[in-house]
C-alpha cells in the first residue's frame, strides 16, 4: 500500500507585477512528497526554487493553486498565513543556507527553543534537545554559543532544531552551500537518515551535484515550471 503524500502542490503558481510585466516566479507546479522520501529541487538561479519553498513552507500564499499537507488544504490564494503559525510549528521544519541560530542562545537552547515555543516544559525540552544534539554527534557542543561552533556544527544544530518538534515535512534551502564537500555530504546524509528513520518527507533545494546520489529523486525547475 502506498502511503498518503505528506506534501502536495496542485497547480501552484506565484505571480507578481514588476512594472508593466507580470513575473511568473512559479507557474502551475504540481507534485507530491511522500513520507520517508528525500527529494532534491534543482535548477538555475531565478528558476523558482526558493519561491516553491516559500509556498510549500506556508510563508507565502500561492497566486493560484493549493498546498496540501497530510491531505489537508492549508494554503490557497489570499490566505492569511500568519494564522498558520501553530500548524507550521508542528508540521514543518526549516533548514537554511545559513544556520540562522539565535546568537545569544547555546546550541541546546537553540534546539530547546523550538520545543519551548510548543509549550514543552523547560526541563523536558532541554533534555530532548540534548538527546537530539547527541544523536548528531554534538554532545560535546551543547553549551556552546553559535559563534564558537564551526559552520558544519552550526548546520547540524539547525537540523536538530528543525527535528525538535518531530515534523512530518522538512524543507531545506541550499543547506550545503556554505559547507565544503565533505561536510555538505554529511548534511545531506543526515537528511537521508532522517527520511529513512523518521519517515519524514524532506525537500531540499540544492545546487550541489556531488550529493545527488543520496536523493530518492530530483525535480528540475526552470522559469517557474517543472522541466524534469
Amino acid at each position: 500500500m502506498i502511503a498518503a503524500p505528506i506534501l502536495t502542490l496542485r497547480d501552484a503558481a506565484r505571480h507578481y507585477p514588476s512594472g508593466d510585466t507580470l513575473v511568473r516566479a512559479l507557474d502551475g507546479v504540481s507534485f507530491n512528497i511522500y513520507p520517508g522520501e528525500l527529494v532534491g529541487i534543482l535548477g538555475p538561479s531565478g528558476s523558482g526554487k526558493s519561491t516553491l519553498l516559500l509556498i510549500a513552507g506556508l510563508l507565502e500564499p500561492p497566486s493560484a493553486g493549493e498546498v496540501h499537507i497530510r491531505g489537508k488544504c492549508v494554503s490557497h490564494p489570499g490566505m492569511d498565513l500568519d494564522q498558520m503559525r501553530h500548524f507550521r510549528r508542528n508540521n514543518i521544519g526549516f533548514v537554511f543556507q545559513k544556520a540562522n541560530l539565535i546568537p545569544f542562545l547555546t546550541a541546546v537552547e537553540n534546539v530547546a527553543l523550538a520545543l519551548h515555543i510548543d509549550d514543552v516544559p523547560a526541563r523536558a525540552a532541554r533534555s530532548y534537545a540534548a538527546h537530539l544534539l547527541a544523536s548528531l554527534d554534538l554532545a560535546h557542543r551543547v553549551d556552546s554559543i553559535p559563534s564558537r561552533l564551526s559552520g558544519g556544527e552550526q548546520q547540524r544544530v539547525a537540523v536538530a532544531r528543525a527535528l525538535a518538534t518531530d515534523p512530518g515535512l522538512i524543507l531545506a534551502d541550499e543547506p550545503t552551500a556554505a559547507l565544503d564537500s565533505v561536510r555538505g555530504r554529511q548534511v545531506i546524509g543526515l537528511f537521508r537518515q532522517i527520511a529513512d528513520e523518521r519517515k519524514a518527507g524532506v525537500l531540499v533545494v540544492t545546487h550541489d551535484p556531488r550529493t545527488l546520489d543520496l536523493f530518492d529523486r530530483t525535480i528540475e525547475m526552470n522559469d517557474g515550471r517543472i522541466v524534469g
Binding site: 510563508l59 503559525r85 501553530h86 500548524f87 507550521r88 510549528r89 508542528n90 526549516f94 540562522n100 539565535i102 546568537p103 527553543l113 523550538a114 515555543i117 510548543d118 532544531r161
Partner: peptide, 16 residues
C-alpha cells in the same frame, strides 16, 4: 529582526 523573523517562522506566538 532576523531572530524575530526566525521565531515567527518557528511558529512562536506574538506574546513571546
Amino acid at each position: 529582526v532576523h531572530e524575530i523573523a526566525l521565531l515567527k517562522l518557528m511558529g512562536a506566538r506574538n506574546t513571546l
